[in-house]
């Protein structure tokens, strides 16, 4: 199954929700739409499902233009952010719904429907909830019901709108793992919307980073982390200090911060022309060593153990940066010398 989106645009009153969006998704891929709120990701998802319509552009599924195809004929499974379970129906009836409303000719017999629903309940791990009502089960369970309901119609494309948004951290992590395993097992082409970059990086084969209605980068997580296409992408994928800088005389200068300049060769990303720039340094890209009193360009504010390392909060001449180091290197309040080993720099356009 292939999904091709070409130059999709959508405007709501004064706001441009989608700007000339183009995307090609391969069969079996698990794609994340990642971006801050208002970046257009949910709008894109809804247009794909047929719940909303673009002002311009096309959507093709398996080569077929979807503009004349209503939502109910698209064969796309949609999991809503709020799950949108049918309140007056039991879990079983919710999941069976898509099969029961099929036209006579395509409707499986009752026994078959029951068999399929029960199989899905088993796979989702919620078999004992079959007779319960949505209001009687937890958020995580509702999420699985919503997923089972969408899968029951054997869709060729699965769309998930912030599937873990309303759940607490522990539940979220567990469901993430479970969803990844499910996708590996089913091989169903899926797109999911999220604003959590960790989630996108962990689950997706490819990530489309969106900003203000446009896709600014569409690549594998590793590639995006390694070569962010713009300052926005670099900053959005967190845990990087954002520093004002200037590229001049072949090196990146960090004035007024007391950091030695970095030669071009040492940079992971370089602006094309000299001039003002913004630089991103990841927490593991700092070199820190303790300094004697009076020396040093920074002070340690706070240290936090994380796994086998320590996350340090360091005051670098008024700017707070996060750096990673071996445990026990510094004590809070201790002066130190901080240096950037590498950075990604982008031209700072006004």
């Amino acid at each position: 199954m292939s999904l091709e989106v070409a130059q999709l645009s959508r405007r709501f009153g004064d706001a441009q929700a989608l700007r000339d969006v183009s995307l090609a998704v391969r069969g079996g891929e698990f794609v994340a739409l990642l971006g801050p709120s208002g970046s257009g990701k949910t709008t894109l998802l809804r247009v794909l499902a047929g719940l909303d319509f673009a002002d311009a552009g096309t959507v093709r599924i398996d080569g077929r233009d979807m503009s004349a195809v209503p939502a109910r004929e698209r064969g796309i499974g949609f999991v809503f952010q709020s799950y949108a379970l049918f309140r007056h129906m039991s879990v079983f009836e919710n999941i069976a719904f898509g099969l029961r409303v099929r036209p006579r000719a395509q409707r499986p017999p009752r026994a078959e429907i029951a068999r399929r629903v029960e199989a899905l309940l088993g796979r989702m791990g919620i078999a004992e909830l079959a007779r319960r009502l949505p209001e009687q089960i937890s958020g995580g369970q509702r999420q699985r019901v919503a997923l089972a309901r969408a899968l029951a119609i054997e869709p060729r494309l699965l769309l998930l709108d912030e599937p873990f948004g309303a759940l607490d951290a522990e539940v979220r992590k567990g469901l993430r793992r479970w969803l990844r395993a499910l996708h590996a097992e089913l091989g169903l082409t899926s797109l999911f919307v999220t604003h959590d970059q960790e989630e996108a990086m962990e689950l997706a084969d490819r990530v489309a980073v969106m900003q203000a209605g446009a896709v600014v980068q569409f690549d594998t997580p590793a590639a995006i982390l390694d070569r962010p296409a713009s300052a926005f992408v670099a900053g959005f994928l967190g845990h990087a200090a954002r520093l004002p800088a200037r590229l001049s005389a072949g090196a990146l200068h960090f004035d007024p911060l007391p950091l030695p300049p970095l030669p071009r060769a040492a940079l992971r990303a370089t602006p094309e022309a000299e001039g003002p720039a913004v630089a991103f340094v990841r927490s593991h890209e700092w070199r820190i060593r303790p300094a004697a009193a009076g020396e040093g360009n920074a002070t340690l504010l706070h240290a936090r153990r994380s796994g086998g390392r320590e996350q340090l909060e360091i005051d670098l001449a008024g700017q707070v940066i996060e750096a990673e180091a071996a445990p026990g290197l510094l004590q809070p309040g201790q002066p130190c010398v901080v240096e950037a080993v590498t950075a990604r720099a982008y031209a700072d356009k006004p």
Partner: peptide
């Protein structure tokens, strides 16, 4: 792309 009738 012609805006069709919303499904709801």
């Amino acid at each position: 792309m012609a805006p069709g009738v919303s499904p709801t």
